[in-house]
Every structure is written in structure tokens, then in C-alpha cells.
Design a binder for these strands. Sequence first.
DNA 1: ATACGACTTGAAGTAAGGTTTAAGTCAAAC
DNA 2: GTTTGACTTAAACCTTACTTCAAGTCGTAT
Lengths: 163, 163
Amino acid sequence: MKYSIGEVAERMGTNTSTLRYYDKQGLLPFVDRNAAGRREFKDNDFNFLEVINCLKKSGVPVKDIGKFINLCLQGDETLRERYDYLDQEERVLEEKVTEMQKQLDFLRFKKWYYKTSVEAGTEDIHFTKGTKFVDPETHQQYRYELKNTKDIHQLINLAVDEI
Amino acid sequence: MKYSIGEVAERMGTNTSTLRYYDKQGLLPFVDRNAAGRREFKDNDFNFLEVINCLKKSGVPVKDIGKFINLCLQGDETLRERYDYLDQEERVLEEKVTEMQKQLDFLRFKKWYYKTSVEAGTEDIHFTKGTKFVDPETHQQYRYELKNTKDIHQLINLAVDEI
DNA sequence: ATACGACTTGAAGTAAGGTTTAAGTCAAAC
DNA sequence: GTTTGACTTAAACCTTACTTCAAGTCGTAT
């Protein structure tokens, strides 16, 4: 089967301008053209497009994706190089996920901070030394004082220390 | 204690230009100025800076961070709004992490694809119907045929089916 | 007193990743 | 046969998030 740029755009959840932009940036060297100069995508091209999609969503710059695609077109000699690239990219992504989890931790601490503030009617409870209050959900009592948030994990532990 | 923009930049792992840019974009309305017009950060300002840092790393646009900071300066009336915002942002981040995990799945499948290809000396094994081969690490035998990668999770399961 | 480093501003420049526009081609429908 | 919709290109434009530049101020050390 052959597919026009419009069909491919719809299937990939993008638009034709973006695909043309990718083509111009060297991400689609595998795409054929018909007699009229129009792009004709093949079934196999979707394998490439999925790789592009994955790397894009993983935060890989367009230029670097192009390099990988071109490695793919160079045949079996670049198999190891391609493996090594993906291996490295896997570690980069894992690191990003770890970083996101840290921000989630912080976000959850701040949610707790605001939940208890809303409950108390004021943010001041977190700045008043030794204020006791009760978590409205768990009904646990806490004593807590906000200093500098140098280590948020430490603060979270501090925050959940029951009296 | 008071801190100059340079000291703050170093402590936050950024540079003075970026902090001035943030200030211009309305992210630092809490910063005082001395008689000479120079920025004077207070200890408490680091609480704001940490929030900015977190939201920035979470992928929140600069403008939106500014909105949140200004909400913070409006006092206890906006506590619930601030909670709701962070609650929503938490879900957005969780969704991002889930998305990243999907890309990690795909990346790992492709690593397996290349690992077995390197072992076989050619990528062709994945296009030859019913080719049997052995995972060099686990010594398990596989039979596997690459069609369209419509559902990568299904393919991964297919790939690890022992004969 | 003057040199130095750190600060101030507005404005221009940069890079990434598209998006839009203008001018034109092509194939099928009416 | 001409209109319509999808395609083609190059080039201009846009947004985000800085980064750099130019010109000037301030406080301290020599």
C-alpha cells in the first residue's frame, strides 16, 4: 500500500507541515516520490515513523533523530552503533523519569502544605513554631515548622512524623 | 540574611541573566531592592525559587509559573486555588511519566531488536518469516516475525514468547 | 582617585521546533 | 473545461526560553 502525506499525518496524529518540516530536516530520507513529485509512503515507512515518534517524545532533538534514521539506512554495518545509541538514550530517559519523580515528590509535599493550610484557613500554621494540627484525611496529628527547604525529602519525612 | 543576584544564581545552579529574565517575566515580584536599585533576595525567597525550579523542571511554561507566584502573593484567599493548580499539575506530570514509560518500553523493544540483530549479524532475521534464534543472554529460543508495529506491547509479548 | 568586579537596564541576537504564506501543480468531480 | 482539494516549494513568520551586548552605576580595594 501507498500513503499520501495527508493520510500519514492523520495516522500519526500530526499534520502535513510538520512532516514536511521533518523531511527538510533529514528525518524522512526513506520516503519515495511519484512521477508528479508527491511523497508516497510505504507500509514499512511506519516503522521509521514510530521510531521518530518515540525519540521525539523522549525529548531527542530533531537533528539527532535524523542521524539515527540515516544510520538505519546504512545497513547491517551500523547495527551495533544503533544499539549503543538506543542504550544510551534509554539511560537518558530513565534519568528524566527519575527527575520527574523528584518533582512529583515536591509537588505532593506542596499539595499537603496547601491542603493543611486550606483546612486551617491560613498558610501561617506552617510558619508558627510547633503548631499542632490534624491531617483532615488521615486524622493524624502533626507538629511541623517550615525552615529553608534545603532537602525536600527530609522535609517530607519531617512533615509526616506523627506526634 | 540578604543575597545578591549572583549568590542566588550560584545557589540555584543557574546564572544571573536567567534570573533577570525571570524577573522581567514576572516570576520574581517578591524580590526587594536596595537603595541603589539592586536586587536583594531574602531567605524566604528561596521557598519561591524552589517552587519556580520545580514547576520549570515539570515543564510548566514561564508565564504560568508567574501566575502561580502571583497567586501566592495574594494571601490566604487563594489557598484553595493554589492547591487545585498543584493538584492539576501533579496529574499532568504523572501523565508525562506514564508517557515516558511507554517510550522506554518501545526503546527496550528496539534494543532487543538490535541486540538480536547484532548477534545474528543482520537485521534480516526480523523480517524472515518464522526465523528461530537464541537470545545471547538468556539462551532462550524465539520465533518471531515483524509486521507493522501497531501495538508495541503486543509485539514485545510476541517477541518474548518461548518456542 | 581610580580601577575592579558585580550589579543595573533595554534591546538585540540565538536556537529549536514548528507554522503560515504565496505561488504554483495535479487528478478527479461536475 | 473548469473548479476543487490535496499536494509541491521556498521563504517568512512565530513562540519559547534564554543569552549577549552596550552603556552605565555602585562599592570596595589599592
